[in-house]
Design a protein around this nucleic acid. Structure first.
Length: 233
DNA sequence: GCGACAG
DNA sequence: ATCTTGTCGC
């Protein structure tokens, strides 16, 4: 399937101050008191992006898996101009236009969206997963590969072990060991999903590798799509 | 003030 | 994120 083309909204922020103001306004819409869909059922979408800084391009992929079998149900991709520089804490403004377009190109909306990065674990409690959840209305969570600026105790070595991810004395996420003896991933809630459920989803989606199948699939798809785009221009 | 900092 | 081959180990 060819990538759809995306453009940011006319009022997309230009400065860091504007972007932080958008986060402060939208964060009030995050829903934290829902458990979210049950792990192992329904459709789960993984989203990720790949960049070409030279050509100022970002390619997003959405891969929908059957949560029970982890088989691919549907895939989509989208291309956009890079709409914001990378600034820690403002990652969403770089990725969201392309990701929204990829999600919008799906025939069936998923029951849950799994993002690369953070949700509630964020300086202003409004990382990529929370932002995407609010804009789509879909339950969402974030799985990051690094602890960012947060602190945590190393979880026990066994798969399934968890430890709190702490920011200013508050548990903003969890370090989750998805494979025996392998570095944990860092899970936080996005929108309409509890932290416990977010961790359960992450484990259910990671039977064989450190990262969830959703993000592995989305990562490889957006890289392939970027290569395609570059080859055909 | 300086350094660190999701992707 | 991205630049990048072989290589150590199960």
């Amino acid at each position: 399937m060819d990538p759809v083309t995306a453009a940011p909204p006319a009022d997309w922020p230009t400065t860091e101050a504007q972007a932080r103001a958008v986060q402060d306004a939208l964060r009030t819409r995050v829903i934290l008191d829902e458990d979210g869909p049950p792990p192992g059922q329904g459709l789960v979408a993984g989203v990720d992006v790949a960049y070409d800084d030279e050509r100022d391009l970002v390619v997003a992929a959405a891969v929908v898996l059957d949560a029970g079998t982890l088989e691919v149900a549907e895939e989509s991709t989208a291309v956009a101009r890079i709409s914001f520089p990378y600034v820690p804490g403002l990652l969403a403004f770089r990725e969201i236009p392309a990701v929204l377009a990829a999600l919008g190109a799906l025939r069936t909306p998923p029951d849950l969206v799994v993002c690369d990065g953070y949700g509630r674990a964020h300086p202003r409690r409004f990382g990529l997963a929370a932002h995407l959840g609010v804009l789509t209305g879909l339950p969402s969570l974030g799985v990051a590969k690094n602890p960012f600026t947060f602190s945590y105790e190393d979880p026990a070595a066994a798969r399934g072990s968890v430890a709190a991810l702490v920011d200013g004395g508050e548990e903003v996420g969890r370090a989750v060991r998805t494979q025996d003896g392998v570095k944990p991933v860092f899970v936080s809630t996005g929108h309409r999903v509890s932290l416990a459920n977010a961790c359960a989803h992450t484990l259910a989606l990671s039977p064989h590798y450190r990262l969830p199948e959703t993000t592995r699939r989305a990562d490889s798809l957006c890289r392939r799509a970027l290569t395609q785009v570059l080859a055909s221009s």
